[in-house]
Design a protein around this nucleic acid. Structure first.
Lengths: 188, 188
DNA sequence: CATGCTACGTTTAGGCCTAAACATTTAGAC
DNA sequence: GTCTAAATGTTTAGGCCTAAACGTAGCATG
């Protein structure tokens, strides 16, 4: 049966995993532990889903910390970035914002509300008497993006810099294919 | 310069992206949009980070919805799963829990508090007069894991079922390598 | 031009998390 | 032993998000 991972740790901390390796239990060990505890359970997904979640969390935590220093929060920068990237006149309606950021309409409404209160965006109706809302970037919002996005992307490029360009493209491609497939399955 | 993606969408929703493809702007287009708007900005990471975040969110949202139907929340099941996987006597101290779940000590404290109030776990000091806390699974907690984990893993196996075993292992391996490297970099 | 369905944005309630402040305990230095 | 510094678990404050309830606008049918 090989080594027994994920052993009970009643004693103190870390039998198998020293403190200086804060999260070193590969997904493979989680799958093995489930197989040991519940033989036959479908564990094929663990090797994909677990590292994927962990990577996402590491990137998100790191970005949040960097942005805190810069005086922004990730949700606001996400909103401003979509507007900035769309090019002049830096306007996008709220449906489109929800679609591009993968959050609910309610979340968009709150994000825009906060950003508007901070003077970073403006909100106006799409046409007279229309209910649709268009959000646009103010100068302050534009400036905020300009002085933060480079730092964020530079930092993240550093974090993935162990990947050689070919490997990076290969991984990016496979992730995109998987993403498209998962999205397709979720649409039923 | 090729096609111009991520065009302003002042008009209505979705010029280039119909509503029936709720999130179809590949990471590559985001990178191209940044290059168009801010030439020279380092965009290498986008192809990795963006699909990775989106996949993580799709999986997390789907799991949350499934678990809501089953009457649990993801955070609680995460806690119970670590305990269940550790094998008899289903006990893990709180430091170890924090390490394995990638959340802060405060979050663990709250998770355990909620689970304890729901009768799913017990909390006791590690030794007499000690400050260290050990969390253990109750029968109710054990039962809850038994009747939910199979469904969660089955569902997730379905979501990644487009990957052939070889592809799956390859991707899992590359993600784990990247995870280890990113973690290493974050330790400074 | 009613009627009812659908789409849309906002608001509210509740949940979970992080960061920081606390209160102890544990470990070292001398 | 004593004292200081580090480690540990909890609490609190504040932030962001989802789900659901609303109120209204758009629109097709008859």
């Amino acid at each position: 049966m090989g080594p027994v991972p994920d052993k009970p740790t009643t004693t103190t901390q870390s039998d198998a995993y020293p403190l200086d390796a804060p999260s070193a239990y590969p997904a493979a060990e989680i799958a093995r532990a489930w197989q040991r505890e519940r033989p036959g359970i479908p564990t094929e997904s663990i090797g994909i889903v677990t590292p994927l979640w962990r990577l996402a969390k590491l990137f998100a935590d790191d970005r949040r910390k960097l942005l805190t220093e810069l005086g922004v929060d990730p949700a606001t920068l996400d909103l401003l970035s979509v507007l900035r990237r769309s090019g002049p006149p830096y306007e996008v309606n709220t449906r489109e914002l929800a679609r591009r950021t993968l959050v609910t309409a309610g979340a968009i409404s709150q994000r825009v509300g906060r950003a508007e209160a901070a003077g970073l965006v403006l909100r106006r109706t799409e046409r007279d008497g229309s209910r649709a809302v268009v959000v646009s970037l103010t100068k302050a919002g534009h400036d905020l993006v300009e002085r933060t996005v480079d730092q964020v992307l530079t930092r993240e490029a550093e974090l993935v810099s162990s990947l050689k360009p070919d490997d990076r493209e290969l991984l990016a491609g496979r992730l995109q294919v998987l993403l498209d497939d998962v999205r397709h399955r979720l649409e039923h």
